[in-house]
């Protein structure tokens, strides 16, 4: 579905001189390598999480894959097309939903933008009505279709953006931070929606997000990019097993205990009655649970995985 070989993108920007005339006649340029010989392949119906810090090259990659940007070197094939040629046959099969950008026309209702997309993508009337109904039901936003976009909240607008982006039932969707700035409920709705869309239409999805929870919930495969280079391409599970060496034991105490008892179990802990938290290395887990059982009066005990953010942080610090 997507083949990328040795993709390099160098941005050339001019640096401002002190002198106005020098700025016009003797411009100096600075080159920034945004992508450095990146290669990967993505198959049909995959959902890939694309993560990395700001300026790592995530959005640049998506923009090249969708034909917005011209690559400096390397080869890119998307559904067997060269994206920058912007062949209509390719554009009809892809979509790029950006959390930070509107494609909807600001002053008129979202439904009018949908009908415009209907003509642009040549969607049959019946399919159009069916898709709008289905998607607006799924996102619970049917009542907002006729409101001018400028009157919608950020979350409501994002839902409309999703419908606009998926109306033509693209086989390949790029989601660039689709949950940015949204509250937890909206984030959850949008995640469920993306999952549902992928399974229903067997779509291939590439997702970038700073909320690693999005990636954790949706993607099985993870591509981590930093300074324009791919530093990890593999399963999310593998990276979690490798870099998640600790688990958190959370206990609710029945009565208060002396801090000495807690130190005896593990020197590092968090204690605020009735809650106690221990960060324990995985290999010491059975031993610690036994100790807790023997020495602490508790009413509840849970074992939590390390948050994905911590795991990725560790990955970055060890792969600088």
């Amino acid at each position: 579905m997507i083949t990328v070989k040795n993709l390099t993108k160098i941005y050339r920007t001019h640096t401002k001189n002190q002198n106005f005339f020098a700025d016009i006649f003797f411009r100096k340029y600075k080159e920034t390598i945004a992508l450095d010989r990146v290669s990967f392949e993505i198959g049909q119906n995959e959902l890939v999480g694309f993560i990395g810090p700001n300026g790592a090259g995530k959005t640049t990659t998506l923009k090249i894959l969708s034909g917005i940007l011209y690559p400096t070197s390397g080869t890119v094939r998307v559904l067997s097309y060269i994206p920058f040629e912007k062949k209509k046959e390719l554009l009809r099969q892809i979509s790029f939903v950006m959390g930070q950008r509107n494609q909807l026309i600001w002053d008129i209702p979202a439904y009018d933008s949908f009908t415009l997309n209907k003509e642009i993508y040549e969607i049959p009337e019946e399919q159009f009505e069916k898709t709008v109904n289905e998607l607006s039901e799924l996102l619970n936003c049917r009542h907002l279709l006729k409101n001018p976009v400028k009157t919608l909240s950020l979350g409501e607008r994002m839902k409309m953006e999703l419908i606009a982006g998926l109306l033509h039932r693209p086989r390949l969707v790029f989601f660039d931070e689709p949950t940015i700035g949204l509250d937890l409920f909206s984030q959850e709705t949008i995640r469920d929606f993306i999952r549902e869309y992928q399974s229903k239409f067997a779509a291939t999805i590439i997702l970038t997000s700073h909320y690693l929870e999005d990636v954790k919930r949706l993607a099985k495969r993870l591509i981590i990019i930093n300074h324009g280079k791919i530093i990890y391409d593999g399963s999310l599970e593998k990276i979690t097993t490798k870099y998640s060496r600790e688990k958190t034991i959370r206990i609710t105490l029945e009565k208060s205990v002396d801090k000495k008892n807690l130190t005896a179990i593990n020197p590092a802990f968090f204690y605020k009655f009735p809650e106690v938290k221990f960060k324990i290395e995985k290999k010491n887990l059975p031993k610690t649970i036994n100790l807790i059982n023997e020495s602490l009066p508790f009413s509840d005990l849970t074992i939590e995985e390390e948050p994905i953010e911590e795991i990725i942080k560790k990955f970055f610090s060890e792969n600088k």
Binding site: G67, I68, K86, L91, R101, N102, Q103
Partner: peptide, 9 residues
Amino acid sequence: VIINYLLKP
């Protein structure tokens, strides 16, 4: 915003 036009057929 021009990106919106570039992405459409």
